[in-house]
Nucleic acid binder design. Structure first.
Lengths: 139, 139
DNA sequence: TATGTATTGTTTGATGTTCAAAGTAATTTT
DNA sequence: AAAATTACTTTGAACATCAAACAATACATA
């Protein structure tokens, strides 16, 4: 196996591991995958309008409408229209939503710690540096 | 931001980038996401029975039945029962399926090259080493 | 200011993903 | 031979997603 294939293999193994870890974490909660993603984004960036949320999620506004409908029904978020432009609806996490976000973030930290535990502190530094580069330039 | 949060953030940014890249690649093909995953696994491991495929996919055999139904209809794979144990069905990629696998693998290599292009050869080696450790021990 | 255009968000109809539970067929165990 | 187990399929339900059509609001310009 050449060096390119080797890295390809490790990258996709890593991605798949990450992916199934995430799904299993979400399954332990009261949330569906799309609801969890929406809460993640709202938690990280604060209140935003439908369109912005849809862009962050990488889906259409139609899909986002359905997701936010459920978040509202389950009381994780609220919709409110803006006085200055009544087309716009701002989505905001409720207390319950913020709590779910904090909990989800804790799971993420746990996975990071699990990953760190198999690396030396030197490798830790290398990984952060490499990921920063990739995230900034590669996608 | 502390060091743990920093790595968490970079890890999940990386994961999300990877994820949306993969979805957009699959969208350019004739395949759905679950079909593409099945082809990926069959291409990497060769022919296998339904149950094994389901385990690799991380879904139930019921779900796998549906996926393989479609792969068969679209002529990417075939089902054949085994003489020695007629409960077992072996799934095999057709020519067309193998071609799709090769094409998908090429896309993966392209992404890896794209990632490599922003890294020094030293960082490349570090990344492979780190990923191997994580994949072997962390999940 | 009136009309046409653009934007924001919702609804609808279609396809796909997934699971759990129930069902079928074949094999193994007792 | 009966009971238990295994491999797979079917079914019904919830969820995810899109494209296209729609409604409400805002903006632009003639």
């Amino acid at each position: 196996m050449n060096s390119l294939d080797e890295l390809t293999h490790e990258l996709f193994t890593f991605f798949n591991g990450f992916s199934s870890w995430e799904n299993s974490v979400i399954k332990t909660s009261d949330l569906t995958v799309s609801e969890a993603h929406a809460i993640e984004i709202l938690g990280n960036h604060g209140q935003m309008k439908m369109k912005t949320l849809a862009q962050h999620l990488g889906v259409t506004t139609g899909t986002t409408t359905v997701t936010v409908d459920r978040l509202e029904k389950k009381e994780y978020a609220t919709r409110e229209s803006v006085k200055e432009d009544r087309r716009i609806h701002l989505i905001t996490l409720t207390e319950k939503g913020q709590h779910a976000f904090a909990e989800h973030h804790q799971y993420h930290s746990n996975l990071t710690e699990q990953i760190l535990s198999v690396l030396s502190s030197e490798e830790n530094e290398q990984l952060v540096k490499i990921l920063k580069k990739i995230n900034a330039e590669a996608f």
